[in-house]
């Protein structure tokens, strides 16, 4: 029997592992985001890039004048701007990833019903999850790269290990995008969605962005160490300060687990929402 191109493509995956949930085409979902992005409001995108710079100038250089230098251990002393810059880098990766994976995803599920359309094709739910999370990750990555290209000439990253801050930012953005989308698929209203913002801001302020955790009582430190942004900041700061050790592996592992859980629950939830 003569089959269409679409059928031949789908049939080629018969017998492959996970064929019911994955068709090997998350890039087509990302391509859709790219096409939509080309005609979107650039100013919104740009604001996410500018935000960490504003923090850097006001806190790093403004407040930094009064603070002077920070002792980061092993007798290593850096300017206050160099201390907070990696935290802002990690935060911008997080913010970029969260923008696309939360409110935009919520809109697509509830109002535009984009995924319903995608899942009526030969795509599987894991294609949609990976494609959307991948796109959100790209935005986090872009913000991190943008921020880095500003702070390197300012002398805020002074050692070669600092280059690894970029792949670290990808890992961080991936983790936040995956968890962000997973959580969003369980949300029912804008009120619930606003809770995400309610969590994000304090997490940014208290996760050791502007001063070490040692200022807090022990129990507070333990809570903060359980949160993802602290791991992100600690990882990026260690890289930009050249403080390399096996002690960084748990931070990496933390994000790998986040990515896995995010993908797992997003895929499961998309299946439940649109394919049950």
């Amino acid at each position: 029997m003569l089959v269409s191109a679409a059928v031949a493509i789908a049939d080629a995956r018969i017998g492959k592992y996970g064929e019911r949930t994955f068709s090997g085409r998350p890039h087509t979902v990302m391509e859709r985001s790219y096409i939509a992005f080309k005609s979107s409001a650039w100013i919104v995108v740009l604001s996410g890039f500018v935000e960490p710079l504003l923090y850097l100038f006001s806190f790093g250089y403004g407040l930094g004048k009064f603070i002077g230098t920070m002792n980061v251990g092993h007798g290593h002393v850096v300017t206050y701007a160099a201390y907070i810059a990696p935290a802002l880098l990690a935060t911008s990766a997080m913010n970029g990833a969260i923008y696309d994976s939360t409110f935009n995803v919520f809109w697509k599920i509830k109002f535009d019903r984009i995924y319903e359309g995608m899942l009526a094709t030969s795509l599987g739910p894991l294609d949609v999850a990976l494609g959307e999370i991948g796109w959100a990750l790209l935005r986090g990555f872009a913000y991190a790269v943008g921020f880095t290209t500003v702070i390197v000439p300012m002398g805020l990253i002074q050692n070669w290990w600092g280059i690894l801050a970029i792949p670290a930012a990808v890992l961080i953005a991936f983790g936040f995008a995956a968890i962000g989308m997973a959580i969003t698929t369980y949300m029912n209203s804008f009120q619930q969605m606003n809770m995400i913002q309610v969590v994000m801001l304090p997490m940014f302020l208290f996760s050791g962005s502007f001063y070490p955790l040692s200022v807090y009582p022990h129990w507070t430190q333990e809570i903060i160490k359980a949160l993802p942004l602290w791991h992100a900041i600690t990882l990026v700061r260690s890289l930009t300060l050249g403080d390399i050790s096996l002690g960084l592996l748990p931070h990496i592992a933390y994000f790998l687990v986040m990515i896995f859980l995010g993908l797992f629950f997003t895929t499961r939830r998309l299946t439940a929402l649109f394919m049950r």
């Binding site: 059928v7 789908a10 939509a36 394919m275």
Partner: peptide, 18 residues
């Protein structure tokens, strides 16, 4: 699922155009 959906064109009750 994916193999069968490759044979189908689906026009849902409520438009879900992008």
């Amino acid at each position: 699922g994916p193999q069968i959906r490759a044979h189908l064109g689906v026009v849902p009750q409520q438009d879900n155009l992008d």
